[in-house]
């Protein structure tokens, strides 16, 4: 049986990543104010090489719509002004809630998927009442 290495991005489900993207963005923005592409680069530096730039902007729009991040334009030395995002108070609250939900879910999922997979499933007749 082959074991998937922890950083095998080729096999990472994009839908899984999409689901946790708001949490990751909030977490990164809690550490440092950033613009869209910079967030993509930071996600990739953390091992999420498969993250597509096109998925980050709609997620940022949602966070901004929900008041969890705010934005401002800052002049850039290399060209036009960039749109920087930073966490709001509501964003910090959302981050705490999302982290709690993630830890709770990942504990359950980890416990479940860490049990050995039986060679064959039990039949309905073999089920214990």
């Amino acid at each position: 049986m082959s074991v998937m290495p922890p950083h095998d991005t080729a096999r990472r489900d994009p839908q899984l990543l999409k689901g946790v993207l708001p949490l990751l963005l909030l977490r990164l923005l809690a550490a440092q104010e950033s613009y869209g592409y910079e967030l993509v680069v930071r996600l990739r530096e953390h091992g999420l090489e498969g993250v597509a730039t096109g998925t980050v902007y709609p997620a940022l729009t949602r966070l901004e719509r929900d008041g969890q991040v705010s934005s401002r334009l800052l002049a850039s030395a290399s060209g036009p002004a960039r749109k920087y995002y930073r966490l709001t108070e509501r964003g910090y609250t959302a981050l705490r809630q999302a982290e709690g939900a993630w830890h709770s879910l990942s504990a359950v999922v980890s416990a479940l998927v860490s049990t050995p997979v039986p060679t064959a499933p039990r039949t309905a007749e073999e089920k214990t009442p």
């Binding site: 613009y35 869209g36 592409y37 730039t53 902007y57 290399s78 002004a81 960039r82």
Partner: peptide, 17 residues
């Protein structure tokens, strides 16, 4: 206009990489 500007600026940054 906001979307165009943000994507244009950031994509130029990405293009450097």
């Amino acid at each position: 206009r906001e979307i165009r500007r943000e994507l244009g600026t950031d994509t130029r940054d990405a293009a450097r990489d």
